[in-house]
Every structure is written in C-alpha cells, then in structure tokens.
C-alpha cells in the first residue's frame, strides 16, 4: 500500500512537473508580459523593469530560477498585486475557496445521491420527471445565471420581507450557503444523473431481491445494499470534482464577492501575472493529483473487490 502510494505520488510529481513546464513556456510564448499596460512604456522604462524582474535573462535561465524557487516552496512575488507573496495569495484564496468548495461538494454529493435515489425509486413517475427537468437545467444552464438569479432572489426577498439574509459573501458561514449551493449545482445535477442510472442497475440486481426476501424494508435496503453499490461511480468523479470546485470558481466568487482562488487565477491570467499563474497552476495540478489518489484509496474502502495497489 505505502509502496503504491509512493509510486502514485512519484508519477503525480512528474505530471505536475510536466504541466508546470508546459504552462511556463506557453505563458511566455503568448505576446505581452506582466508589465505591458494600456499606455506604452518608454524603452528605458521597459529595460529598467525587465532588469529588475529578471526578464532580460534568457528564458531557460528564468525557467531554472523558477524551478529552483518552486523546489524551495517559493512561488515569488505577484507582479500585479504589489508586495504580496504568491504563496500568501494562494493560501488565503484557497482557504476561502475551500470553505465554499467543501460546502458545495457536500451539497452536490448529498443532493446528487438524494435526488438520484428519488428519481430511481420513482422512475418514470412524476417525481422522476420533475427532478430530471431540474437536472437538465442544472447541467445546461451556466452557473453565473443561477448565481445572478439566486442573488437577485435573495435581495428581492430581503426587501419584500424585511430580512437581512446575506446575498453575498461577507465572511460569515451563512453567507456561503447560497453560493455553495449554486456552485455545487452543476455537479449535483451530474451526480443525480449518474446516481440514477447506477441505482437503477442496482435496484434490479439479484442481491437487492435477496435483501427483500430477508424482509428488509426499503430504507434498510437502500442504506445497506443499494447505496453502497451504486455510489461507486459517484465517488470516481468526486475526486476531480473536489479538486476543481474547491480550487475556486471565478464566476461564483466575483458575483458573491468571495475572495477565493478562482478569482486570483483568472485575474492572474488576464494580467499575465507570471508568478501568480505558475503558483496557482502548480498548486491546482498537485491538488488534483492528490485528490484523485485519495479517491482511489477511498474507492478501495467502499468496494472490497478493489485492492488498492494490487490491481493492475
């Protein structure tokens, strides 16, 4: 097991290394740099600043400097957010995004399983149709529409009913609920569909019939037989979903004014903030690799047939 984990981590390391390298050279190949702005700098200014930030060095040298610093866990200072370390930006942004993301994943996972179970239980009856309409909406409507709508709705309710329910992130836990729900919506819809088809298969399986013959009621059957067996595909996609959701969503974060990592990343790209781009990319890559590994291990716990590290 530990050997397996080590092997996976090693291959993950090379994956991240590869991503970082491609991003680094891709980023430099794109015209423009962090210093370019609407108004042109004089040649002298450009030279002075290039020298200051080391852009005058050959690219491979900059690359090795980047590797060296990254190896020491230092992504350097942001170009566009003066005086801020990229490490700090990531730490702060991620803590916000992760709070939101974990909530969103909880919503998505529980919602997906619940709705998926309902649609499967009531398949081809009205609850099924109703939920599936929402699922299609959830998958096809972009999240900023939901986000704007949800916010507008809260503001409207607040006004009509004289409430003060937070309509944007103000640092409190409650204010994260609606953004998290909206953020998790797409994943929830996807999971619902996945859960539905997977549960439908399980419902018709022989061991569920056996469970019925034992005299279990439908809740007991769901809980100890159907759920665990139908949840496997859900878990598989949960890993990447956790990685992508907890590392932030630009749209949700800007609409609900949550200072998360997604916003930082997009702003970094928009402004060619080299250090910020590299920092967030390496971070996101590593996190993704880690989450997929974690999910594979969890998978082994849920499905005893899969022995982590032995299968091949």
């Amino acid at each position: 097991m530990s050997k397996y984990v080590f092997k996976r981590l090693l291959s993950g390391f090379f994956t991240v290394f590869f991503i970082a390298t491609v991003t680094f050279f891709g980023m430099h190949a794109i015209p423009g740099d962090p210093l370019s702005s609407d108004k042109v700098m004089s040649e002298a200014s450009k030279e002075a600043l290039n020298k200051k930030y080391g852009f005058d060095k050959p690219l491979y040298e900059q690359y090795f400097i980047f590797l060296k610093n990254t190896a020491q866990g230092d992504f350097g200072m942001s170009f566009t957010k003066k005086g801020q370390d990229v490490n700090d930006i990531i730490k702060q942004g991620f803590s916000e995004s992760a709070k939101l993301g974990v909530l969103a994943i909880l919503f998505a996972a529980f919602g997906g399983i619940l709705w998926g179970a309902l649609t499967a239980k009531y398949r081809n009856k009205w609850p099924d149709y109703l939920i599936m309409i929402f699922v299609i909406l959830g998958i096809s409507v972009p999240s900023f529409v939901f986000a704007s709508f949800a916010q507008l709705f809260i503001v409207f309710l607040n006004q009509e009913l004289n409430l003060v329910f937070p309509y944007r992130g103000d640092g409190s836990f409650v204010s994260l609920l609606v953004p998290a729900l909206v953020l998790g919506l797409g994943t929830m819809a996807f999971l619902t569909r996945l859960m539905r088809s997977s549960l439908l298969e399980v419902i018709n399986s022989d061991f569920v019939r056996t469970a019925k013959a034992k005299g279990l009621n439908s809740w007991q059957i769901f809980k100890s037989h159907e759920l665990r067996n139908s949840i496997l595909p859900v878990i598989t996609i949960l890993g990447p979903a956790i990685a992508s959701i907890t590392t932030g969503s630009f749209v949700i974060e800007t609409i609900f004014t949550i200072p998360g990592l997604g916003k930082q990343f997009v702003e970094g790209v928009q402004q060619n903030d080299y250090t910020l781009i590299m920092g967030t990319t390496v971070f996101y890559g590593s996190f993704l690799v880690l989450m997929v590994l974690v999910v594979d291990i969890v998978y082994g716990f849920v499905d005893p047939r899969i022995k982590v590290g032995e299968s091949k």
Binding site: S205, D206, F207, R209, T210, A211, K212, A213, K214, G215, L216, S224, H225, R228, N229, V302, D303, P304, R305
Partner: peptide, 19 residues
Amino acid sequence: RGRDIGMIFQDAMSSLNPT
C-alpha cells in the same frame, strides 16, 4: 419474509451483496 419463509436463489454470487 426471512423469518417464516426463507429463500435461496440460483446464482449465489449475484444474489449476495458484493460490498
């Protein structure tokens, strides 16, 4: 069910919960 009437099925492998 299960108390006064027990039942066994043809394919035991698929009739038992794999997890």
